[in-house]
């Protein structure tokens, strides 16, 4: 029996171990929280700036004669992206007082190549039920499969649009996989992750929105 245990362990090492990837795509995200005229959170608008590698991949074969790729040229890829995003909850995870917020399909979306040749995906995600944010509206953007590493924009991570007076936002949690910080990332950080921790979620910073 010991032999079979041994053989089994061997196969588990080959197959059963949790498959993993590491980030191949890096996104710097800006998330806008859009309020309706009753002071409820109505939608989240994401503007995701891709790294130069993925941008080169997304724009290959587009942009005639060295011109930037146009929105129209990028529209088919944008459609593919957003359709597939639906299967992954749009990588956008919001909670109000601990309860998960449900999103409907995006009302608009587009891919754009900026003059600096970085590609930006913009889409607006309406809440199924516009909700009063109360004191504890939280928002995280991450890829649970960790193929994409998200970080929030340093200068303007989140903006509240049409928010009632007195609402404020803050961002918690340093992003250890920030492009520069990655180089300094120690082994200890990874070794100390608790067993069973979800990588993408663990590394995502959290946006807090509070209204009076």
């Amino acid at each position: 029996m010991r032999i079979f245990g041994f053989a089994l362990a061997l196969f588990l090492a080959g197959f059963g171990a949790p498959a993993f990837a590491h980030p191949h795509v890096w996104v710097t995200a800006r998330e806008d929280v859009i309020f309706d005229n009753q002071g409820r959170v109505a939608a989240i608008r994401g503007a995701w700036v891709f790294d130069d590698m993925y941008s080169a991949f997304a724009t290959q074969g587009l942009g005639k004669d060295g011109q930037l790729a146009t929105k129209d040229e990028l529209a088919p890829l944008a459609k593919t992206n957003v359709q597939s995003l639906a299967e992954f909850d749009y990588f956008t995870f919001a909670k109000i007082a601990g309860t998960k917020v449900e999103f409907g399909p995006p009302t608009d979306y587009s891919l754009e190549e900026r003059p600096d040749k970085l590609v930006v995906l913009t889409f607006t995600l309406p809440l199924k039920q516009p909700s009063d944010p109360g004191k504890a509206f939280t928002l995280q953007v991450y890829d649970p499969t960790y193929f994409v590493a998200f970080s929030l924009d340093d200068k303007l991570p989140v903006e509240l649009l049409g928010a009632p007076k007195g609402c404020s936002s803050s961002v918690l949690g340093a992003d250890p996989l920030d492009q520069e910080a990655t180089k300094k990332l120690s082994e200890a950080f990874f070794a100390n992750l608790s067993p069973g921790s979800d990588f993408g979620e663990k590394l995502a910073s959290r946006v807090f929105v509070a209204c009076p």
């Binding site: 949790p18 993993f20 191949h24 993925y54 992206n81 960790y146 067993p195």
Partner: peptide
């Protein structure tokens, strides 16, 4: 399929710890 797949799909990161996490690092 991953929304931002490059080529085929890469294996996703599940719940990881220890050595696996270190390798990802």
């Amino acid at each position: 399929h991953h929304p931002f797949a490059v080529g085929g799909d890469e294996a996703p990161v599940g719940r990881v710890s220890g050595l696996t996490a270190w390798i990802i690092g």
